[in-house]
């Protein structure tokens, strides 16, 4: 058996940006993102808000729900600074801050959104800091949320 010289390995393809796939339940949320609106799912039976979107109310188990537009401000609940990205697509952007935000829309039930926080230095991060949503169109279907200081 002859041994041909090994071909140089093909360069790894550039990683694709991982994107959410809207579902039947989450479509109104993503439609809202595209329009620059923050849409939250409310139970049609008990009225309580739930986020992320899902078919069954975790409080009363009703499957009837409606989406309502919610205010876009909130307060930082916690954060992390990602240096080692979970997906290689984000390697070029690292380190980046991901803030977990208590949205003003939450009452007795928290409504939290996890998204990149832009334009804020690490040293200025603190619990309770006011932020608001921004909207980044990625393609025709998907617009992703991020946060900026309020």
């Amino acid at each position: 058996m002859s041994t041909a010289p090994a071909a140089a390995p093909a360069p790894a393809p550039a990683p694709e940006r991982p994107l959410p796939v809207p579902t039947r339940e989450s479509q109104p949320f993503w439609d809202g993102m595209r329009e620059g609106r923050f849409m939250l799912q409310h139970c049609a039976a008990c009225g309580k808000v739930r986020h992320y979107p899902r078919p069954v109310c975790p409080h009363c188990f009703s499957m009837d729900s409606e989406f309502r537009e919610a205010p876009q401000g909130g307060k930082i609940h916690a954060w992390t600074v990602c240096h080692h990205p979970f997906n290689f697509f984000f390697k070029a952007a690292a380190p980046y801050i991901v803030a977990l935000v208590d949205m003003d829309a939450g009452g007795d039930v928290p409504v939290r959104v996890n998204a990149p926080l832009r334009g804020v230095a690490e040293a200025d991060l603190e619990i309770g800091k006011r932020v608001r949503l921004g909207f980044e169109p990625v393609n025709k279907e998907v617009t992703l949320p991020f946060f900026v200081a309020e």
Partner: peptide
């Protein structure tokens, strides 16, 4: 895009 390290990091930061 989160794995356990990122998720628990936020709780650790809060503590």
């Amino acid at each position: 895009m989160f794995a356990p390290a990122q998720l628990y990091a936020q709780g650790a930061r809060r503590h």
